[in-house]
């Protein structure tokens, strides 16, 4: 079947089998391997992208369902060489370790901050509930999103925790 959609602001058209998942379409047809696959039960969220502005697990959507849709993947976040504040936050606050869940986590954070510019820690935690991370214990992911939220509101982000780390010699 033929599908046409906009991916990262570019129009694409391709012929796909109905059974092709959106995530496979992005990774295999378009070479956008930043969107990852971590499970097959729509649980881990590594494959999260924005479909028409809403966070979506691209492993639980057929490519044919996305016909006509606007897709934004992690590769499309930075513009004109400028990192998105969420990407910047993940870097500044050590919000990633192995990096595998990171693209999906970042996209979920982008989706969250679109809807809630000033989330509490609890709201951040609920906002990324659909994304599993095995490395960070989520601690610094929360800090990264707090950083991004402040930045996007035009405020100074809270200082990093290591500035007041207590070390007993």
């Amino acid at each position: 079947m033929q599908v046409s959609m906009t991916v990262n602001r570019r129009a694409v058209t391709a012929d796909v089998e109905p059974r092709m998942l959106l995530v496979h379409f992005l990774r295999e047809e378009l070479g956008l391997t930043g969107t990852h696959i971590g499970c097959e039960t729509s649980y881990c969220g590594a494959c999260t992208v924005l479909v028409d502005g809403r966070t979506t697990k691209s492993c639980t959507m057929l490519a044919v369902q996305a016909d006509g849709a606007e897709i934004l993947t992690v590769e499309g976040l930075a513009q004109d060489g400028q990192l998105h504040p969420v990407q910047e936050g993940f870097w500044e606050r050590h919000g990633l370790q192995c990096g595998y869940c990171t693209p999906g986590m970042i996209m979920s954070a982008v989706g969250l901050l679109q809807e809630n510019a000033n989330p509490t820690e609890d709201e951040i935690r609920h906002g990324i509930e659909g994304n599993l991370c095995r490395c960070t214990g989520y601690h610094n992911i929360v800090r990264a999103i707090e950083y991004a939220a402040a930045k996007m509101r035009g405020e100074e982000p809270p200082p990093p925790e290591w500035e007041h780390e207590e070390v007993i010699a």
């Binding site: 969107t35 993947t73 992690v74 870097w91 990096g99």
Partner: peptide, 10 residues
């Protein structure tokens, strides 16, 4: 290592 990973190019 982060710039590649947060851009999805790792």
């Amino acid at each position: 290592e982060d710039p590649a990973l947060i851009r999805g190019t790792g």
